[in-house]
Amino acid sequence: MNFFRLLGDLSHLASIFILLHKIQTTRSCRGISFKTQVLYVVVFVTRYLDLLTFQFHSIYNTVMKLFFIGSSIYILYLMRVRFRPTNDPSIDTFRIEYLLGPCAVLSLIFNYGYTWLEIPWSFSIFLESVAILPQLFMLQRTGEAETITTHYIAALGAYRALYIPNWIFRYFTEDNGVDAIAVVAGIVQTALYVDFGWIYFTKVLQGQKFELPA
């Protein structure tokens, strides 16, 4: 554990609390892509299958994994059951099969072993790197977003960005080389946030509304 990773994980935690806060205070999931949230459940469940082996890394690790799985499923419940009428599927039109298929193929080509833990792990790494796309696509379509929604996406972007210095730090302080799968997917994932991040920094953080140029 190092500073960047801890800060990244805390940022990830913060993003979930921001999302829950947004849904509960506005009593609405307007502006949130249900498809992205489904993808996150798939990501967490496929990545944390090692929970079933009971080979613990640390209490921190296990508690966080359980929290990410639990909270992501809870968010689906909020969107599909509790605040269902506020969820508008007609603007959430990204075809996620175009993400799931290629990620499945990639995980069969690039993995650390053909086992029931490694292939889903690899799949989850690839899928996470593109899981935000339906959300960004929705933002693109509506052309604007509630400020709190942009804080949620920004916190997710910060989490991914912070994992990069974490890997650089680990490369120099540990003796295990580079995890090419996580690093390449992580860089791709972070790059997807660049456009959004630019508008977030230049508009939202200056007190303006998040609006895309027409």
């Binding site: 690790n61 990410f68 792990w121 994992y163 295990n176 080389g177 799968i181």
Partner: peptide
């Protein structure tokens, strides 16, 4: 090639 233990990350 070293196989890094990245599985300790979230």
């Amino acid at each position: 090639i070293a196989t890094p233990d990245v599985h300790d990350e979230l």
